[in-house]
Design a protein around this nucleic acid. Sequence first.
DNA 1: CATGAATGAGTCTTCATTCAT
DNA 2: AATGAATGAAGACTCATTCAT
Lengths: 200, 200, 200, 200
Amino acid sequence: MARTADPNRRESILDAAHSIFARKGYAAAGIADVAGELGIAHGTVYRYFENKRDVAAAVLNRALERIAAVVMAEDATATESLAEYRAQVERLGHRLYELFVADRALGRLVFYDLGAVDDELRERLRAAHEMFAEYTASYLRNGVAKGFLRPDLDVDTTARVINGMIFEGAAQVTHTDDPQRLRDRWIRAVVALMFDGIAR
Amino acid sequence: MARTADPNRRESILDAAHSIFARKGYAAAGIADVAGELGIAHGTVYRYFENKRDVAAAVLNRALERIAAVVMAEDATATESLAEYRAQVERLGHRLYELFVADRALGRLVFYDLGAVDDELRERLRAAHEMFAEYTASYLRNGVAKGFLRPDLDVDTTARVINGMIFEGAAQVTHTDDPQRLRDRWIRAVVALMFDGIAR
Amino acid sequence: MARTADPNRRESILDAAHSIFARKGYAAAGIADVAGELGIAHGTVYRYFENKRDVAAAVLNRALERIAAVVMAEDATATESLAEYRAQVERLGHRLYELFVADRALGRLVFYDLGAVDDELRERLRAAHEMFAEYTASYLRNGVAKGFLRPDLDVDTTARVINGMIFEGAAQVTHTDDPQRLRDRWIRAVVALMFDGIAR
Amino acid sequence: MARTADPNRRESILDAAHSIFARKGYAAAGIADVAGELGIAHGTVYRYFENKRDVAAAVLNRALERIAAVVMAEDATATESLAEYRAQVERLGHRLYELFVADRALGRLVFYDLGAVDDELRERLRAAHEMFAEYTASYLRNGVAKGFLRPDLDVDTTARVINGMIFEGAAQVTHTDDPQRLRDRWIRAVVALMFDGIAR
DNA sequence: CATGAATGAGTCTTCATTCAT
DNA sequence: AATGAATGAAGACTCATTCAT
């Protein structure tokens, strides 16, 4: 049944679905809308995907992979000092927001809609969070090992806390009028909080 | 008067809907499920609510009000020193997590499902975020004014960043096996990050 | 069950139903609307009527009786000459239109809505038509017997044809802005057609 | 192309709806009945019509068009004498009754049920009446101009009065056992009334 | 491979009717 | 007698999915 034919078409269906789901929400979006966006028959979608949920799963996977690609571009063990780590966090922040600014629907998909589709997709999302947390933790662990971060840091929890700050920023991008400005202020605030604290 | 109108009926429907929506998701849940949970006819639900969306809106409102009640219990201008503020943040954190621990579905409802129902509900959710941000900002502003927080703090952005840490924790509660432990570690990590920084 | 209690209330329910049915149509009108019009509980309607259809039947009956009362006020055998008959037709026409002008909803009820409720009501309406036809026929028969109408008149059919002219006028009243003027022109046209013909 | 779209499908749905609406009445008839009559799924009906009301509107339109086609087949200005006009009225009457005799449900649909569906359909029906009245008036106007009808004729009102006679006959066809005989007697009675009068 | 007509399970929603108070 | 809360049958409508062409 599925999994045949032109791989470009499969990809273009995902593009359309990504856009439609983000615009109308998964529940309100119909397979016919997705097909209509491409000017193909809705039956055709079923040559590339088992069903609607399968489309959503693929959209989510692709979105998570794109985010993961950015996150994993850096080497967690490469930094040797606080200054280097700070620079790395800034770099990573910029790349990540690039993604969410370029595709402002991404946040809605990843943070709202596709998590509401299904227990399995929700679980997939949770697993991705877990993976991102583990990634952030590995940076912190490197810093503790190298001695430039506090030895008593609760690495696992702090990693999730940091990710929370980042994800919230990504979610905010969906709403804001001036995403560039938000990005800069957000990264600066996060970095300042992490490295300088809020206290005078 | 006829069979006296149970004044708790409306409330009990919201309870049931809260639970069903959290369990199956808004889209998958049916009015029949909600009514079935209470052992009443589904038509009865329509004596108390216009339609399914209206039920969702009421569930969301109630949930947001509960959260707001906790957040607004503290007085933003009462703190005079960094230590007092730190204590206040810890207090607030505990109360907030109490809520999410007591009702582990709350996070799912507020962070996923009910935001996907509707543009209007999504907007309502956004407005609530905004309000919470403003609230956190008022704490920070107080600290800057009183001189115990950095004068160059980007108050508005930092407020949202801090809220991101908090909300992420609330979302995590939905998944964890040991919510008490998560709560304690989370609050400690957030407070440490805010007040001590991560640097050695 | 029904058929108890205050007869004024029964009548007032019929008044309300008459008005509501005419305004919204039988199908779109609810028992709750009827009760609401009177400021009583909808359950109360069921103390006076078996069900909604029963209300419609009573409304129709009353309406037909009112029309019948006007029609039967004249004595079919009283006229002795063409001139007398012509005067009688004019008189009857005026009285009949009085009714439809006073209650412009009457036409809609009798000609559209209540005939569409039910096979039985439709039959009742048909029977009323039959009766009116028989009545008109008795006038014609009198005229033929007395010698002032054509002896070769197809009395039964012509009676129905004449009634058709009259009913169409009643139906028109529902739509017109100036019912008085319509009434006068209509009666004049009908009488002219019957007694003078259209030919030069 | 897929299972080729039957171009008669839409038409056959209208046929079925025409028949079902006439048999059970619009309100009592369900889309499922219509689909059942054709042995198709009820969802299929919604591929051809927006909703139930839309089906009714199409049924009504088609019915009115059929009637209009007959009415408009004659040329109002073609007659030069009373005899010609009389022949024309007879011809038109026959053709019109042909329609109502062939489809005895037509009268019920056009005179009762479909007028009760909706304000818009009622208005459409009224507009059709108006058009028919204008048509009849144009015949009369021609006769007055040519000098074979009374110069003092109230053309507009008389046209409606004449139509009333015709429509009543069409409505009667629905009930009668012997429609052929009714038709002949009706036309004869109408023509006699118009051209000979009832007076001796 | 693509199409899109057809399907029908699944839901929401209405509202006449009942009946405990 | 009156009330109006509760009921649940009934029906309109949607849309993911299938499959003959």
